[in-house]
Amino acid sequence: MDLTEEQRAFVSAVDTFCQRECGTRQQRDVLTNFGAESHNRALYRKMADAGWLGINVEPEFGGAGGGMVDLSLFLEATARGMAPIGGFATTVIAAAAYAKFGTAEQKETILGGVIRGSVEAIAMSEPEAGSDVANLSCKAARVDGGYVINGQKTWCSNAHIADHILLVARTGSVAETGNGHHGLTMFMVPTNTEGLEIRGIDTMGGREVNDLFYTDCFLPASAVVGEVGNGWRQLMAGLNTERIIMGGLMLGTAQRAFDDTLSYVTQRKQFGQPVGTFQALRHRLADLATEIECCRLLVYDVASKVDANPEKMLPREASMVKLKVTETAKRMALEGMQMMGGYGYAKEFDMEGHVRRTIVSTIYGGTNEIQRDIIGKTYGL
């Protein structure tokens, strides 16, 4: 796609920053505690100071006022540069909900915080409700002056480093509403709220996700984000943002996995010549390069459509972005590992990390099976 001079300069600045601050494996090991942590607060603060974290936040809150294309450029560049800012994705997803539905005070707190480098999280999944959102059971009971929360959330990304959690809880029973998607409400929950326990879940990706336990957790009425009982519709309104964000991130990761593979196969020699010159590898790389470019065109085409009509729901296109880019990134990383042989499996190189990150991308944010179902339904199937 054609970028403006300003956008090209922005991407160049982000590329230069990543190369300087986290361009070597040694730098990234220090920043991430040898891969155990996905987010480095000091590096994140530097990006905040540069004004980049507010790329799509409205100017009235100190942001740049950019659109989805600008945000996608930043996501792709930072993922390609392997910048350890894992908290950014959930932050912009949560911030989008506050921007659309939050009160003036909530917007000032959250959007202003994003500019300064705060991290935000969103809690929706439960032990018995992942893809089946209608089965959410975490309860928000109305009491004098607010609500009391009881229940559990799970797989909450970045809750352990977040300032607030955007909680989706049930304020109306299925018996009352007749539909599990009705009676859900969003709440802004500071992570230091009494009655909230955040417990990390060990994963192959290090410390990323958490169980959340709400025990008689009181929230004032002012904690409600948007309308009581309208949480499902508010969630649906954010799907464009969430799925394109994941597309931008995995596009950058796929490109980095390709670049790392290309670098290896042009240097590694077997039978007296670089392994990349053998047809078996050359053709695989040609196919993968083509697939990545198709993903790039898809991401920025859909991002441009969102910028042209921010209020329009694009369920088919947004799901296509999430499905296509994450599947391509996973394929690229697995193919890269295969082409690098044993070195692709060794922690000495970054490829094994690419594999871990891309595999889980097909699960979070709505599994790719769900994305296929959504796409099929848009065709009346």
Rank of each mutant, 00 (worst) to 15 (best):
G117C: 01
A129L: 10
E227K: 14
K312P: 00
D144C: 10
D216K: 12
T328Y: 01
V355W: 06
G380F: 00
L288P: 03
K324I: 01
R142P: 02
D373P: 00
T91W: 04
R28Q: 13
A333K: 04
G272L: 11
G113A: 00
H160G: 08
T109Y: 03
D15G: 03
G146W: 11
F10N: 05
W52N: 01
F213G: 00
I93T: 11
L167Y: 08
Y98K: 00
K324V: 02
Q234V: 11
I244A: 12
T177E: 14
T4Q: 01
G180V: 05
G248D: 03
F258S: 09
A83L: 09
V114A: 02
D49G: 01
N33G: 14
G23F: 07
A134M: 09
M351F: 04
E291F: 12
S263Q: 09
A64D: 08
A9Q: 09
Q255R: 15
G151H: 12
G23C: 05
I149Y: 02
T193Q: 05
G231I: 05
G23A: 05
S304Y: 04
V168N: 09
N135G: 02
E369Q: 03
T177Q: 15
F213M: 10
A280P: 00
C217W: 03
G366N: 11
R207K: 09
G130V: 10
A333T: 07
Y300H: 15
A79G: 06
R282C: 07
N40P: 07
M1H: 11
D49Y: 01
G376E: 11
A223Y: 03
A79Y: 12
G130H: 06
Q279W: 13
L381N: 11
G130L: 04
M250C: 12
M246W: 14
E6G: 04
E327P: 02
E227G: 01
F278L: 13
G353H: 08
C294I: 09
A83G: 06
I363D: 09
A257Y: 11
G252H: 09
G200I: 01
G231S: 09
A36E: 14
G146Q: 09
G376W: 02
A123R: 08
S125H: 14
I149N: 02
G353N: 12
E291H: 15
T78E: 05
E242M: 13
S125Q: 13
A89F: 13
V306W: 07
E197A: 14
E242V: 14
G247H: 03
E60M: 15
E60Q: 15
A95K: 12
V69T: 13
G344I: 02
V306D: 07
H164W: 03
G344E: 03
N368I: 09
A333W: 06
L136K: 07
F101R: 11
L285C: 10
A308G: 05
L281F: 12
P315S: 10
E335N: 05
W155T: 06
L166F: 05
D49T: 10
M124P: 00
N240L: 14
V114L: 07
M188V: 13
I161F: 03
R296S: 02
T91E: 02
V174S: 10
V148I: 15
A333C: 07
R25F: 06
F61T: 01
Y364H: 05
Q19A: 14
L166A: 07
D144R: 14
T16A: 15
G353D: 10
M236Y: 04
A64F: 04
L285M: 15
G51Q: 07
A96L: 02
